[in-house]
Write a protein that binds this DNA or RNA. Structure first.
Lengths: 110, 110
DNA sequence: TTTGTATTTCGTAAAAATACGAAGCAAAAG
DNA sequence: CTTTTGCTTCGTATTTTTACGAAATACAAA
């Protein structure tokens, strides 16, 4: 097979990257848990829903790679936080994307 | 391997589903093209960027399945539209998700 | 009915995502 | 120094995604 690589606009790729980070319930769950804290989270995330530690770690890595969260080792724990800047950035990108549509007459969509 | 299925909150699954639909540049590109129209799009999407027709069709199917767009056969063309209701629904879900965070002091994230 | 046009489905290949247990690692505690 | 604790990396299996060309399909037009 070819499985050719197509190049896309930079913003599109960035947006797709964020969406991909949000595209798994476990990762959304993790973000939800982080959000419920007044500050960073240092507890046992794996204790909050049934997931293997190694799987959780993979999801955390993905979220970290996407920039949405940040983690810092504070032995013997890890403090996980949402990354505020990137969070806002993501929010803006998505807003921009969704507001780019006029959706004028819903008539013509019939 | 087990590859166990974990059950998540319904809203989380819905949100993940939408995010997944948005997680590929080609699909974002398609949505962008649809958005540039004053109404539905009946042109040749494959002509707007290099992609095989069959691949495009697959992406369109995913977008349709996610509910974000709708397509209607108007031979010899197809009219593709954004699905306004689901679009708003998606927007609201995402907004709710992103606004769920207080992100109070960015201090504590340092 | 045959031809043309536009799209989808099928078959298939390759890559990426998902999940787990076992093993590894790094710092604190003993 | 050894043990404990908590997380990550490795190895691996399975499933899903992505991509394409070829074949099929559907209707309109000739």
């Amino acid at each position: 097979m070819a499985t050719e690589v197509i190049t896309y606009n930079e913003d599109l790729i960035k947006m797709a990257r964020i969406a991909k980070a949000l595209s798994h319930p476990a990762r959304l769950q993790i973000l939800n848990i982080l959000s419920k804290q007044t500050c960073c989270y240092s507890g046992n995330i794996a204790g909050e829903f049934p997931i293997a530690l190694s799987t959780l770690s993979q999801h955390l890595k993905e979220l970290k790679d996407s920039g949405l969260i940040q983690g810092e080792i504070m032995h013997p724990n890890i403090r996980y936080c949402i990354n505020p800047e990137n969070w806002h950035l993501a929010k803006e990108l998505i807003d921009k994307f969704f507001n780019g549509y006029s959706l004028i007459t819903e008539e013509c969509c019939k």
